[in-house]
Structure formats: structure tokens, C-alpha cells
Design a protein around this nucleic acid. Structure first.
Lengths: 203, 203
DNA sequence: AATCTTATTAGGGTTTACCCCTATAGTAGT
DNA sequence: ACTACTATAGGGGTAAACCCTAATAAGATT
């Protein structure tokens, strides 16, 4: 269980925030509360791991609006939606858009806690994978344009000879770029290279 | 738009089935109706493409039971759930388990039709990918155990030399198995091999 | 008994890939 | 101007992969 996770509670009802805060405190979970979506966004830290507990009906930006906005980011925390006035189409949409759960108020405490635990686990997994991808991407950013071209062709399975032909350069130059690229990417083998490159393409 | 798709309607209410059948007929979609989950399963054809329109509350196996059962299969068609007595937790669960949609009765015709069209598209995509995977798997089944061992090590990035060491055979033997394996898999290059193998491992 | 498959090994030849060093020309930054 | 990086190219050597042929042996099948 990730220990440095925070549960971000976003609800414009002060009493609801307090109740959830107390509940989480009782089982040793760190939480942080906001009274509006905007307040959360102002304080948003992409690095912070954990999950959201998000009310739908709020003044200003609604919970679902915030969910949509977070979905446009490259990496967003899991969102657990709670609402007192939800309906089935709303729940279906929220879940289809990736909500970890959609819970009606009032809810059983255990239901929320279970959701939060799953969400935190899920977030930790996602962050682990994202970290690896970012590391690979940062190595890829070290390549010069030419090196990237050569490596790309290598990944598609072309031999140095035909790469040289495609780019109108000599075999030696291809070999130089290829070697430099592999070195920068810290790829020990073609197989390793392929794994890294394929891991960057989602789905 | 896939032309040979069928919409499988499963509802124990004869009038509902008729109504949906007529609706689909009017826009040229082929449908097939069943009055129970069991009746559908008895007639189930894994090859048939399309989607299900599935009622929750039925005598015998419920719609959600059928959904769960289909989820255990390697390839199952998209499921659109319709119900007159649904609630939010039920909808959330169904969608989390992969339901294409969860619609309350009575519904607007267009809502169902849109869902069906999306589901059919989705099914066609899935089937396309599944076809490719099956083709690769069938080639893999042609490999002898030894060939598979060698190819597996090749995919992990090992050189022939160390494979020979691992399997306590000579370099020549490894080369022979490797060549035979590549030929049977129709892999034109290591890169191609890797793509095929990685495409078989989901997620 | 004859045949097929699988697993194994060997030899020889060709092609690539990998590694190290060197070297030039252009560009960008200090 | 000096430096660093990039792109280019060539030489030389080692290792690995690829290709083809051929042979042996055990096991299963016909």
C-alpha cells in the first residue's frame, strides 16, 4: 500500500468534507479538502499521488466538468464521484469516462473506503508505469533528429543498408547514428530497444 | 460499417422484443430475438459479429449473469443493457464490467440506436484484432517445443550463444531452431518477430 | 519395414552488426 | 576565436546472424 498518498476531497458542503476527513483520519489516510473544483485546480500538483473524492453538484465548475478536464491531462489521478442527486445516465457517463466509482449519498462508509483503497492502488500502478515511460521519453529526447530517424527505421525492422538508402547517407553514417542512439537510449539489444519503443505507444 | 452484423435481443417480454426488432428493421439492421439468456446461449455462435441488447430482469439467468458469463469467454460481443428497474450501483457495476451502455426503460429510440451503432463498430474492431492474434497463435502452434524455447529466448534479447548455453546445445542447433521458428512464424525480421509476440500479451 | 517428425550437430560461405579510431565541415553557444 | 555538438564518411577488425547443405538418431506413424 502506497504510504504517501493523499485523498483529495472536493465538495462544497463543509459538513460532508469534515465527515469524510474524519473517516479517513480514523484509518490513517492523509486527506486534503477543497470547497470548489477551482480551488483544487489552483492547488493541483501532478506529482501528488492518491485519488479524488468528488462531489457532482457544486457552485462553479461541476464535478463532472472537473473530471473531463482532468481527462485531458497526460496523467490524472483516479476520481471517485459521490452525489446526492445522481441518475443512471450520469453514472454511466462518469464510469465510461474512467471514474473509479460513482456513489450515491448517503453511502456506507465501507463502500467509500473500499473504493478509495482500490483507487490508490490503481494510481500507484499507473504512476509506476508512467515513471518508466517518462524515463524512456527523456532518453529519447536526447537523440538528435537524425539519430531518431535512424532508430525509428531500425525499430520498423529495416537493415542498416536500406536505411542508408532511404536517408541518402552512407552505411557508415547509419552505423554511427545507430550506435549513438542505442547508447543514449541505454538499449542493450534490439529486443530491448523494441520493448522500450513499443511501451511508449499506448494500446 | 460492418454489414453482416446481427443485433441479438434478449428479453423475456415479447412486446419489447417486437418493438426493438421493428425499430432495427426500419433502419436495415438484422436482429435475432431470444426470450431467455439460456435460449441465447444455446444458439450462441462465437463467430457471429454484432452486439447484444440485454434485459436485466428475466426468468432464469439474469442479464447481468449472462454478461458475467460472456466475460469469461476469450471473445465476447458488446453488451447493451436495458432495464426497467435499474439503480445506480447496478449500472456502475455493469459498465465497469465492460457493458457498452446501460439504458433505462423506457428509452428514446435514438439512444439505443446510437449505442448499437457504436457497439457494432467496436465489435468489428475487436474482431479484427482478434483475427490477427489468432493467426499468429496458430503459427506459434506449429513450432516444436524446442523451437518455441529458442524463439522465446530470442525475443527476450539473448544471443544465440547464450541460448545454446542455457539449453545445453550447440550454436548450430540454436541457429537451426531459430531459422525454422522464424520461417514457421513468417517473421521477416527480429523486429517483426517482437511485434507479433508482444501483440499476443494483453496489456 | 518404410516414412515422417523432431532434435541434434557440422562445415562453409555471405551478410550484417558492432566496436574503435580518425577526420572534416557546418552550426551554435561562450 | 574557441568549444561543443551534429552530421558525415572511411578503415579495420571481431562477432554475430543468415543461408545452404548434409548427416545422425530417436520416436511416432503408416
Amino acid at each position: 500500500m502506497p504510504s504517501n498518498s493523499t485523498v483529495f476531497i472536493i465538495d462544497d458542503d463543509h459538513e460532508v468534507r469534515e465527515a469524510i476527513e474524519l473517516l479517513l483520519q480514523s484509518i490513517g489516510l492523509v486527506s486534503k479538502s477543497y470547497e470548489s473544483a477551482q480551488a483544487y485546480l489552483d492547488d493541483f500538483d501532478p506529482q501528488a499521488s492518491g485519488c479524488l473524492v468528488l462531489d457532482v453538484r457544486m457552485r462553479g465548475m461541476s464535478g463532472l466538468d472537473l473530471q473531463n478536464h482532468l481527462n485531458t491531462l497526460p496523467q490524472s489521478p483516479p476520481v471517485i464521484i459521490i452525489t446526492g442527486h445522481g441518475d443512471i445516465p450520469m453514472a454511466v457517463q462518469a464510469v465510461q469516462k474512467g471514474a473509479a466509482n460513482f456513489i450515491e449519498k448517503p453511502f456506507k462508509e465501507q463502500v467509500l473506503l473500499d473504493s478509495i483503497h482500490r483507487a490508490i492502488e490503481h494510481d500507484a500502478e499507473q504512476r509506476g508505469k508512467a515513471l518508466i515511460k517518462e524515463e524512456i521519453q527523456s532518453r529519447l529526447d536526447l537523440l538528435t533528429p537524425r539519430e531518431r530517424q535512424v532508430i525509428n527505421e531500425v525499430v520498423t525492422g529495416k537493415r542498416n543498408k536500406s536505411i542508408a538508402n532511404d536517408l541518402n547517407i552512407t552505411l557508415s553514417t547509419v552505423e554511427a547514428h545507430r550506435a549513438k542512439g542505442m547508447e543514449k537510449l541505454q538499449a542493450k539489444s534490439l529486443s530491448h530497444l523494441m520493448r522500450m519503443m513499443i511501451s511508449l505507444t499506448p494500446k
